[in-house]
Design a protein around this nucleic acid. Structure first.
Length: 218
DNA sequence: GGCCAGGACACCA
DNA sequence: TGGTGTCATGGC
């Protein structure tokens, strides 16, 4: 089978969608917060939670650690899973404060593999959230994999040597130039596209249908 | 009223 | 190692 390259599909998506304000944020730390709040949650709900946070406390690791647990829960309530996400936010801030004096700039100075290992050691930060933080907050060249990516590229016929998060990540990072902006835009385009996609539809043909579709997921 | 969303983890076999 | 339940709100 002669599959079109990931580069080809990127160009295709790039001509189709706008990336304007895909991940709006005023600081690197705000992106980290968003990465946790958006776990299995629509961005619309995350925005409400971030607005609450910014309206009530300074959005920095020290202030989040200083805020009472129950107060944080009420602030991030709209993003769902507010109890676990409060714990996760505090855990991330503990790492930032203890290891990097609360500074994302200091964190950035380490090689991304070291940062990734530290992030994955934080309870509540899995591979996708860690890579969101590395790519969008810290501008490290890491390709983010999510269920959309696997669904779409499986359907296109791609089949990495290992059907795992790391397998798919390796596939994309070996297929594409090592370019932070390319990785940022590609992941965003996949998500934007997936929202307009039916599982039956090729990647180049948006479809509003999502339910009642019997096309196999994998 | 059910489905879905910019995941992760604990638990079990 | 893989499958399943849990965490939860808000839009459609």
């Amino acid at each position: 089978m002669n599959l079109k390259s990931p580069k080809y599909h990127f160009k295709n998506l790039e001509t189709k969608y706008s990336l304007k304000d895909w991940w709006p944020a005023q600081s690197e730390f705000e992106i980290m917060v968003g990465a946790i709040l958006t776990q299995n949650t629509s961005w619309n709900n995350v925005e409400k939670a971030i607005t609450n946070l910014k309206g009530s406390i300074n959005l920095d690791p020290t202030s989040i650690l200083a805020a009472p647990h129950e107060f944080l829960e009420t602030l991030i309530h709209p993003s769902g899973y507010y109890k676990v996400k409060t714990r996760r936010l505090k855990a991330l801030c503990t790492l930032l404060v203890n290891e990097f004096d609360g500074s994302t700039s200091k964190m950035k100075q380490l090689p991304w593999r070291e940062i990734r290992a530290m992030l994955l050691g934080v309870n509540g930060i899995g591979p996708e959230t860690a890579d969101d933080i590395l790519l969008y907050a810290l501008h490290k060249p890491v390709f983010v994999i999510d269920q959309y990516t696997i669904r779409i590229f499986s359907r296109l016929g791609f089949n990495p040597s290992s059907d795992s998060y790391e397998g798919w990540q390796q596939f994309f990072m070996q297929s594409l130039p090592n370019d932070v902006d390319l990785f940022k835009n590609y992941h965003a385009l996949i998500i934007i596209h997936a929202k307009n996609l039916c599982r039956k539809t090729p990647i180049c043909e948006p479809c509003p249908l999502k339910k009642d579709c019997n096309y196999p997921n994998r």
